[in-house]
Amino acid sequence: MKQRYHSSSLSLLFWLAGGLLLAFIVVPLFGLAMDQTPASIHRVLAMEDVRQAIILTIEAAVITSLIAQLMGVPLAYLLSRSRLPALRIVEAIVDIPLTVPHTVVGIALLISFGRNGMIGGPLFHWAHISFWGSFAGIVLCMLFVSLPYTVNAARIGFDNVDPRIEKVARTLGAGPWRIFMKVTLPLVWRSLATGFNLTLARSMSEFGSIVILAYYPETAPVKIYDLFLQFGLSDSSAMSLVILVLTLLIFILFRYFLFGKKEPMGFDR
């Protein structure tokens, strides 16, 4: 017979707490949706700069997620495989962006990557790359705050690959490159895709650092803030709903394609 979980007062209390939490997440978003009319949605979508902000946000977030994969996956592999004690410090460094206030991130990036910064200065001088008020600046902010999601998701994936599978591949004559490309990567692609998805979502929602380093061109969150300041709640809330639906849609579609037909990988039992 199945265990009846609701029978104890403890589980009842836990369900209550969990329910409150879910309501806390869903109710404000639901309220936001209820507050809109088709006409208000139509009105904001008709604005050229709103549409541009949305497209810009998606573009920047996709590019950010791709760069994050290129930079984050190798580091995640090193963190998972190497036993060097120093890598524990690296782990902590990777998680720093999760803890720093995003306005602080913006200011820190501005100091280093601004036109007079120690990195931004030479880049502007020699390559005419400017992060101040530019697409590159937006990507830079997004990358900084979302990298931990890529690294941590990939790390979990690599940790879950049975080391014996890589060892047996070596005894079968495969070198490190072949093992990584033909054995390890195919076993962790779900984790990498999850990291990509989380990074994408986090990048699309970034506001605090972007507003400092690259207010213009406006990303969607910045545009919402702009609408709120200029025209008040009605227009900004309509655009908020559009962004909300878009982000959720991407998130849900991604999860569906990743785990729709669930097939556990990595461990062979």
């Binding site: 014996r164 060892k167 591949a169 005894t171 004559g173 076993l187």
Partner: peptide, 19 residues
Amino acid sequence: AAENRHIGFVFQSYALFPH
């Protein structure tokens, strides 16, 4: 190097490539 030794290694639970 391990990959050049021509040694057949059979691990616990066989470690077949699941993919």
